[in-house]
Amino acid sequence: MSAINLLEESIVEKTAGESESIPSQTFPDEVILDIDNVSISYSGNPAVKHVSFPIAKNRITSIIGPSGCGKSTLLRSINRMNDFIDGVTVDGNFIYAGHNVYSSRIDPVEVRRNIGMVFQKPNPFPKTIYKNISWGPQINGFTGSMDELVEKSLRQAALWDEVRDRLHESALGLSGGQQQRLCIARALAMEPDILLMDEPCSALDPISTSHIEDLLFDLKSRYTIVIVTHNMQQAARISDYTAFLEMGDLIEFGITDQLFTRPNQKRTEEYVTGRFG
């Protein structure tokens, strides 16, 4: 309920000064994470300004926008990875499971156990493939069969067939695309509620990219995915919802098809048709 209001509010807010009419949108999905009036600044310089939009459960939400628009900053604040950067301040709420993840009663470690992340560049641990997967569950007190979990995670990441015979070899021997799928498998082994992906394909070739896009499609039924991408075609291909940010402002949020074919905002139209950015 609140999500629908939020969605409309944010659109109304952004269009207040313009004369376009707004088609009424409804938000048909269950909300797992509500980004509510979030502002983020680096040592006083605002990077994200009063952004609000909902993240739908078991859907892919993409965040697009030109370089420096604050999309990565926003993504990294969802699971409090910005805590490790000096001088970052976050205002507003990220409501997840009934709590603001920035509440003083919430342990950021607990947040990251439930909201996983895949980074821009593949960053496997310099250990074996098996240990890359098993370490996260192991430190978090996993008691089941580790072998099964490793296999399941690698299968989910569509990597099992390529690495089943070399589980105990170094992960650094894998290709870039395989390493990134290993990082996805590593995140999935924690069975996160939400998986954040920060331009996961930007360091990969087109074939590896399409592998990962196919993979995201399959994962949607079990996980909620938020992906930052500078590749608009990718956002259009894989995501259900899209948020378009520019200079820290949320210009438009909506169902991907609508945002790309019938955007409400002139800036969105100019961006998705490639006139700037």
Binding site: N79, M81, F84, E110, K121, P124, F125, P126, G136, A187
Partner: peptide, 27 residues
């Protein structure tokens, strides 16, 4: 030791001590 390794560990819900012990020290 590259920052990216630490971030990978933190993102899995590791504490600073677990990260330091399991990844930073061996590397």
């Amino acid at each position: 030791v590259p920052m990216s390794i630490r971030h990978a560990a933190y993102a899995l819900g590791a504490t600073k001590l677990q990260t330091a012990w399991a990844h930073v020290l061996p590397a």
